Amino acid sequence: MTIVDMTSSEIGVLWSQYIQNSMSLHMMKYFNEIVEDKEIRTIVEKTLRFTLNVNTEIEHLFHNERIPTPEGFTDKDVNIHAPRLYTDSFILSFLEMFGKAGTVAYCLSQSASSRHDIRKFFTDCLLNVSNLYNLSVDLGLEKGLYVRPPYMTKPKNADYIEGKAYFTKGFNPFTKRTLNSIEIMHLFENFKTNQIGSFICTSFAQTTETKEIKKFFVNGKKIGTKHVKIFSNKLAESNIEPPSSSDHGVTESTTRVFSDKLMMFLKTVLTASGQGNYSAASTASMRYDLVADYQRLSAEVALYAKDGLDIMLKHHWLEEPPQYPDRSKLINQ
């Protein structure tokens, strides 16, 4: 089979996956040092091997194409000997989030690829990260740590929506209709991701010495906590018990674990993911008050993301993706 050059899309998704896996790799190295539960450790070790294998394969692909490998993150970006900053419960929740985000990312990467070997590579990645996600959920269920979505009464008939009132009954508290299953799903998932995001901001704020960055993470915690409360209230309005956890996930350690560069990059990734989640939820929701909430909260997250981008630019922490040639500049040389 003749191997053709990589397309711009293939270069882009491989580059992005390398950077993100480079970050995940060093987080897993630390988790592997501090995790106490043997069964959770097994999943951490599998995830560690997976991220390492993915980046090794991308390095090989880039080498063959004579494309420079991005710098990403190194052992300088993590102190694996730092005291325990996270509980085992948090680590398992992070692994669940890693698997969930990975299935979306690798599915997108696969669909953006044309070359057979690259499609096969991303297909294998998708299968492996799906397996890691299933392992984390199964273990969470077994240990009673996984928070299930709310149950609901099963419908007796297949019905059709009658009139626009179905969409508008959300603004008036006296005529507000209860949530449908799709709306519950998005509220619940956004509740969970914001809760984990708040824990991460807490851990980063208490371990960085840089005032500017500490302030950024404190603001992130405030935003996450605020959004959790909003989603919780929306569920409670329909007499749905919001999910809760007795494990706050973060210890009292103030010793630095990760570099400011790695912490800022992770928060950038989570913020972008959050905006995508809000966009999907806004599109899927059928109550206009929920649509308005998601759009308003998304704008707040966008402003927060800009603050993070400004900090990363200021400290020269943003690697530039492979760039298409500027033909006008070349012609005018």
Rank of each mutant, 00 (worst) to 15 (best):
E33Y: 02
D37I: 12
D37C: 10
I40K: 06
R41Y: 04
T42C: 04
V44E: 11
V44I: 14
T47C: 12
F50K: 05
T51W: 01
E57C: 01
I58S: 01
L61G: 00
F62E: 08
F62Q: 08
F62T: 09
H63I: 05
R66K: 13
P68W: 02
P70N: 04
E71M: 13
E71D: 09
F73S: 05
F73L: 05
K76P: 01
K76R: 14
V78S: 08
V78Q: 08
N79E: 12
H81L: 13
A82E: 13
L85W: 08
D88L: 05
S89P: 02
S89C: 06
I91V: 14
I91L: 07
S93C: 07
S93Q: 14
M97K: 13
G102T: 02
G102M: 09
T103V: 15
S109I: 06
S111C: 12
S114N: 10
D117K: 00
D117M: 00
R119V: 01
K120D: 03
T123P: 00
S130M: 11
N131G: 06
N131I: 06
L132V: 05
Y133V: 02
N134K: 13
D138Y: 01
L139W: 00
E142G: 05
Y146L: 05
T153A: 05
K154P: 01
P155L: 04
A158I: 15
I161Q: 06
E162W: 06
A165C: 07
F167C: 08
K169S: 13
G170W: 09
